[in-house]
Amino acid sequence: MIFSVAAFAILVTISLALARAFMGPTLYDRILAINMVGTKTVLLIAVFAVLSGRTSMIDIALTYALINFIGVVAVLKIVEQGNFFTSGDDDRAK
C-alpha cells in the first residue's frame, strides 16, 4: 500500500516538473525540468520493482540513471558550444 502512495507522489512531482518544462521561460529551465523528470523516473522504476517483487527491474533503474546523466551533459555541451567535436575551451571565449 505504501508503495502506491510513493508512486503517486512521484507522479505528482513528475507532472509538476513537466509543467515547468512546458512553461519554463529559458532553455535551461527546460533542461533542469527534464533532468528532474529523469531522476524521478529512476525512483519510479525502483519503487515499482520493489512493489511488484521483480527485483531484476532495478537494473533498468540503474541504466536509466546513467543514461539520464549522460543525456543532460550531452544536451548542455551542444547547447553551450554548438557542436560535439571541439573538446577544448578555445571557442568558449568567443
Binding site: A9, V12, L16, Y28, M36
Partner: peptide
C-alpha cells in the same frame, strides 16, 4: 523514509514553480 522522500519530492516540485529565477 519513503514518506519523507515523497514529501521532499513534492516540495521540490513546488519549489520549481515558486522560485523567481532560474
Amino acid at each position: 523514509f519513503i514518506t519523507t522522500g515523497a514529501l521532499l519530492g513534492i516540495a521540490g516540485g513546488i519549489g520549481i514553480h515558486r522560485f523567481p529565477d532560474f
